[in-house]
């Protein structure tokens, strides 16, 4: 439906930013986790976004292109959650159960300051998408006022 296209685009972005927020919370929650299932410290996770294209059949692309009209796309989608490969931080703490024979503990590669900055960015991006949604809503409401 053409009228609600921008609504659906903003909705996909809102979902994407919420997932990003989930991952940031997971990173902050595991800032001191030295043991995961595979025995290594926790690795910071990052969300990858991808432009979402409409699942349009080839014939639609062909006819839209031949009439010089373009498909707008349909928002954003999460293409994956990957682990940050930067090395673990090493802290000297011989009393820690996970310390090696030299007293070195490998801590997660989560940088709390970076996570806070990303959190602000996710919140602001969410707000921006809500603003875009409200703008398209007020456009629709203005259209209803035509001829009144």
């Amino acid at each position: 439906m053409g009228l609600f296209n921008s609504f659906n685009i903003s909705a996909s972005a809102l979902s994407a930013q919420r997932l990003r927020m989930d991952i940031i919370s997971q990173n902050i929650a595991n800032v001191n986790t030295t043991r995961t299932e595979d025995g290594t410290p926790y690795r910071r996770k990052v969300v990858l976004f991808q432009e979402k294209k409409e699942a349009a059949p080839f014939s639609q692309y062909l006819s839209e292109e031949s009439r010089n009209r373009y498909l707008t796309g349909s928002g954003v989608r999460v293409s994956g959650i990957v682990e940050d490969p930067t090395p673990f931080k090493e802290v000297y703490d011989p009393s820690h159960p996970d310390a090696d024979e030299n007293g070195i503990v490998r801590m997660p590669n989560v940088e709390i300051v970076t996570e806070m900055v990303n959190m602000i960015s996710a919140t602001r991006a969410y707000e921006a998408n809500v603003t875009a949604l409200n703008a398209s809503k007020s456009m629709a409401m203005k259209a209803l006022e035509i001829g009144r």
Binding site: P57, F58, S59, Q60, L62, S63, S66, R67
Partner: peptide, 12 residues
């Protein structure tokens, strides 16, 4: 997979 018929390609 859905198969769609090819729509109107141009105005002619």
């Amino acid at each position: 997979m859905n198969v769609y018929q090819i729509g109107m390609v141009n105005n002619t």
